[in-house]
Design a protein around this nucleic acid. Sequence first.
DNA 1: ACTTGGCACTCGGGAACACAGAGTGCTAGG
DNA 2: CCTAGCACTCTGTGTTCCCGAGTGCCAAGT
Lengths: 339, 339
Amino acid sequence: MLDDRKLAVLRAIVEDYVSTNEPVGSKALAERHNLKVSPATVRNDMAALEEQGYITQPHTSAGRVPTDKGYRLFVDRLSQVKPLSAAERRAIETFLAGAVDLDDVVMRTVRLLAQLTRQVAVVQYPTLNRSTVRHVELVPLHDRRVMLVLITNMGRVEQRVVELPEVVEEHRVAHMRGVLNDCLDGCGLSCVPEQVADLPQRLPIEERPAMATILSVLLETLVERHDEKIVFAGAANLAGADFSVGLRDVLEALEEQVVLMRLLGETSSDTPSALTVRIGSENAYTGLRGTSIVATGYGQGDNQLARLGVLGPTRMDYPVTMGAVRAVARYVSQILAAS
Amino acid sequence: MLDDRKLAVLRAIVEDYVSTNEPVGSKALAERHNLKVSPATVRNDMAALEEQGYITQPHTSAGRVPTDKGYRLFVDRLSQVKPLSAAERRAIETFLAGAVDLDDVVMRTVRLLAQLTRQVAVVQYPTLNRSTVRHVELVPLHDRRVMLVLITNMGRVEQRVVELPEVVEEHRVAHMRGVLNDCLDGCGLSCVPEQVADLPQRLPIEERPAMATILSVLLETLVERHDEKIVFAGAANLAGADFSVGLRDVLEALEEQVVLMRLLGETSSDTPSALTVRIGSENAYTGLRGTSIVATGYGQGDNQLARLGVLGPTRMDYPVTMGAVRAVARYVSQILAAS
DNA sequence: ACTTGGCACTCGGGAACACAGAGTGCTAGG
DNA sequence: CCTAGCACTCTGTGTTCCCGAGTGCCAAGT
């Protein structure tokens, strides 16, 4: 049905179209790639490919352009991820190594990825799920207000101001802090709720209402931040590429955390560490037809922390983009593991 | 030189051009605004205005368009800030009131401003300058690693991992924490350096190297974060408006923290709480011709914390935009003061 | 059975052209 | 100083025309 030569033709079409941004005709194809066959033969193959929906022509008597289905086949079977050059690798490494804290790591990563791929890069903050509690701090602010600070082993810091139901003396606060830390130190975030379940009962009665309030805020914090912040960079790269659909929609999607989240995460369930590519209409989000997403999870081995990727026009250089995404994911995993 | 009627004509031109986005001609002007004079008279006035550089015509025999100088005059003398409607005010208030921490306040503010003005909103994080130290925390991570956490009265939290020159026992860390807090609690950030200057001398000799390292990181943190993070939102609003210059440049400028910083801050020195408007070429940044910036400081009274504003096409509705920026600045100041 | 050359056909896009309409500057008169 | 009239100058749009790239199909060759 699709013999080797037809596949070669499809590959050639994708490659040419990606690099020239113009519909590619049979003659040019036969010349540029040494297919050893005449344009007429190529035309026949093209007709077959079009028949099956892998390519299409914008108008009668124009060259062919890959369809989403065509790109899909190309990505799945006709291309292989292109590794980065040694120079690029070194650049990544040194750039990421300079990060001072988690915010900085994420910021650098997203910029790096944007620059490397010349697309829009998207990075999700490491989820709290697998983290453990490193330290809990209660800082008295006023009589009835304390700041709750939660420090995790990933270097992440969560903070909340808590309004207490009644005035609590400083030494009480100090005591509660001690109890909290004894109870939670080293404990995984996911098991915090059960750990603290009976905590108020173990306290002197005058501390119980305050502790109950604090705990409710603490639990709320954990739940709220469960799906995490997302940042992006490289929006300027959108300006060059012309989308079939207005780029207003794309920009809107980028600023909508929830949408972005879904786009990155959609296929993360089965094999989180694999590269996933969503092409054009596969996105199932109106306004993102014409854009593709290349994403992968990052984190150490089976301990996947979150996802990162890039978003660009469907007509992108998949092998290179995939190589960059994979490489950056590896390096950032490494950096995070080291801290 | 510029009598009242000429000014009225200029005002009318600006208003019409802003709302229609088309060069405005003498006839339409004489009709739409009741100027009580004939088109011919208007033409004479226009000729004078053009002579002095307030308006220009794209081509011979097209209507007139305001120049940057024209907008400037309009903003300075011909318009007055348009206050928001009561409904808008209420919306702002309730939206901002829901914020849970500083990050959230900033995030909500920038989104709100973007939505309100339908432009790109830019908000600078409150500077640390005027803050005071609320609490310093040292959390042991490994033998030779502690996390330094600095909590300010603005609810801001800074964190850094510190590599110690030698192993330090936990009770030593606790002691150092106590000393640090005694020394710094309530102290303004700007006077931290002098406060800690002789601190190592007052410690037992075994703690001195560790404390010296910690202090150097602490001071570094204060300096580094001195000019602050900036966030923006509403980039999608750029897609609609067509800039004379490509929007690629605008997007690039937005992602370049330093540039953004300069744009917001340029005129903050003299009267920080006033609205400042920079129109088109006044920006002195290539690639931002065609864009204007409306900004103001926020914070309580003379205690200016940082700046916020919007960026949009030169052809924007200045009275409305200025009203929105001013209102949002007031509300966010209020919110921050309350916490 | 597949490949190849030939040939007629189809469109898209650019160049040339005309034209209507909006807007101007100028001048003369109120 | 304002106004009416007039000639002039553009831009933008619609029309037409033509070139060329590219196709589909058919018949001949291997």
